[in-house]
């Protein structure tokens, strides 16, 4: 599934230790990202596997549903997961912003949350505020561009999944 990308994680470019696993083939010991349907079907076996596991949450459901996959479905499997990759099929589809916050704030998920798919320059900072820590970026994006974009808005009006509290609260510490 993944196109060519470079991984930007916690503000730095880095080697991606994860692979998107082939659905048809048994999992290796490498940290592997699988589909939600495979996770549900093979949960018992996967629980016994002794390697890192991640899942990709599809936003457009690949035509399976009109809405895409429901983050609520991940809840029973969170203890097995070290990573959730949230797909953004186009920049216009902001459904994943909510999935990220639910994972961080309601499920207290503390693994890696990454954004995959079509993500715009000025969405990175907003994604970070929603709890996304890793970005699959087009190879043309430089670290400098990324850091600049992250620094464009320094404060926030409202709380989200990061540690900014928002102006309405911050004014009265």
């Amino acid at each position: 599934m993944p196109n060519e990308y470079q991984l930007m994680k916690d503000g730095a470019l880095c080697q991606d230790e994860w692979i998107y696993a082939d659905e048809e083939v048994g999992l290796s010991d490498a940290p592997s990202i699988i589909s939600l349907s495979r996770l549900k079907a093979e949960a018992d076996v996967l629980r016994a596997r002794n390697a890192k596991l991640g899942v990709q949450l599809l936003a457009d459901g690949n035509g399976k549903t009109k809405l895409g996959e429901d983050v609520q479905e991940l809840e029973p499997y969170l203890d097995m997961l070290s990573l959730v990759s949230i797909a953004f099929p186009t920049y216009r589809n902001g459904r994943g912003f909510s999935a990220a916050r639910v994972l961080r704030e309601q499920f207290n998920f503390d693994g890696e949350l990454r954004a995959s798919g079509e993500v715009l320059h000025d969405q990175w900072a907003m994604m970070r505020r929603c709890g996304i820590t890793a970005f699959e970026l087009a190879p043309s994006v430089s670290l400098e561009t990324f850091s600049d974009a992250m620094g464009e808005l320094t404060d926030a009006y409202q709380p989200a999944a990061d540690d900014q509290r928002g102006a309405l609260w911050q004014r009265h510490k």
């Binding site: 912003f97 994604m127 505020r129 929603c130 808005l153 926030a156 409202q158 989200a160 928002g166 309405l168």
Partner: peptide, 16 residues
């Protein structure tokens, strides 16, 4: 005004 502030640059609800 409170709603204006809360909704301005809301990180989750800007691509509805």
């Amino acid at each position: 005004e409170i709603i204006r502030q809360w909704s301005t640059f809301h990180p989750e609800f800007t691509y509805l």
